[in-house]
Design a protein around this nucleic acid. Structure first.
Lengths: 200, 200
DNA sequence: AGAAGAATTCAACAGATGTTGAAGTCAACG
DNA sequence: CGTTGACTTCAACATCTGTTGAATTCTTCT
């Protein structure tokens, strides 16, 4: 008996436009600096409509950032070929994702995490539970120093993201995915499977 | 003949207090999120006094960030012992600086550069001219791929800074400088002097 | 046609921001 | 003493922020 009369919620075009504009804004300005009014203007909409659809600014950020990130589909591509060369494949996949349109979402998370406390918590939780732990399990890298290995990988990859996509430091910006995989791949490989100099 | 009457500019205590409060604010909130009023309150001073001493907010940021960074004094300490083990020494020195009180300045630069365009330009320029070029010259690493090597080093070290000091990702936060030097030193060493897989 | 209700907009709120100019306070000089 | 001028504060400005509630448009149903 529910909902029989009234206008249908159809035509989610504007809703999607708001999401898209918010992703762009969050990606290039970060959570704090991005403004609802700026997002609304970018979507050609009244600011109040943003709240009508998504509620508070935090909820909008969650909606904008949550959807298009799903590392599960990338794991097979990285693992194909076994442990040998997994470092280079991980770097190449990482660069490919950040170069794609969906890389904006990652940039939004990183940019926001640096100045905003709860987004930092979000990114930390996401990196740990969705990426690091999963990668450790899939690669069979159990052991007492597994989290340290994962953290080292995260430091190198996030550093690459910071210098290449945020700081825009040459020549890393112009380097190809293959060049970066050749240069950084061995680092990641060693962090995952090599000697990292702990306890002996 | 100049300035013979009037109150002397003496007692720069409050001026220094403002500088100190601004460093703290910029370090933990970044350029955009840090506010003049917050800084003034932290220094126990009226907001207008901040402008009286430093002019605009950008000038205050420059004053707060410019002084206590001088990489020249650190270079000998990194170079002592020759090229062998320079990677580990660089990592250890890097961690030591960021762990010291002056690390706040670096954190301010990094946090600000991520959301603010002109601070990003500042940090980029600083990293290139004050650190990378100088390190290349002092280490005698001339060559066509010198800047790429330096960029790779920057990516790993900035990544360490992001994960350890901004994102606060365990177990990197609790790791000692020696542990980090043992784990990351070889990476830096290879970026500087090893095979990074380009043109051959 | 008429009613219902989602989509959308208008106008305003309370608060924070950087900045400014005028005023007040106080130490050092002629 | 009286003037000078740096130090310091007060009050206000224009602008932006997130958010809200009422009003309006427009589509879909009975």
């Amino acid at each position: 008996m529910a909902r029989r009369t009234g206008r249908r919620p159809g035509n989610p075009a504007t809703r999607e436009a708001i999401l898209q504009a918010s992703r762009a804004a969050f990606a290039e300005r970060g959570y704090d600096a991005a403004s609802i009014r700026q997002i609304a203007t970018g979507a050609g909409v009244d600011p109040a409509l943003v709240h009508h659809y998504f509620g508070t600014k935090e909820q909008l950020f969650l909606a904008a950032v949550q959807a298009p990130i799903d590392p599960r589909e990338l794991i097979p591509q990285v693992l194909a070929g076994g442990v040998d060369g997994v470092g280079a494949r991980l770097v190449r996949t990482f660069v490919r994702v950040w170069d794609s349109p969906r890389g904006g979402t990652a940039a939004a998370l990183l940019r926001s995490a640096v100045t905003n406390e709860w987004t930092a918590r979000m990114l930390r939780e996401f990196v740990i539970t969705q990426i690091l732990r999963r990668a450790i399990r899939e690669l069979g890298l159990e052991g007492p120093d597994a989290m340290l290995r994962a953290g080292l990988v995260a430091s190198q990859l996030l550093g690459l993201a910071t210098t290449r996509y945020v700081l825009k430091l040459e020549p890393l910006v112009s380097a190809t995915a293959d060049q970066l995989a050749a240069a950084i791949g061995p680092t990641v490989q060693r962090y995952l499977t090599g000697d990292i100099g702990q306890d002996g």
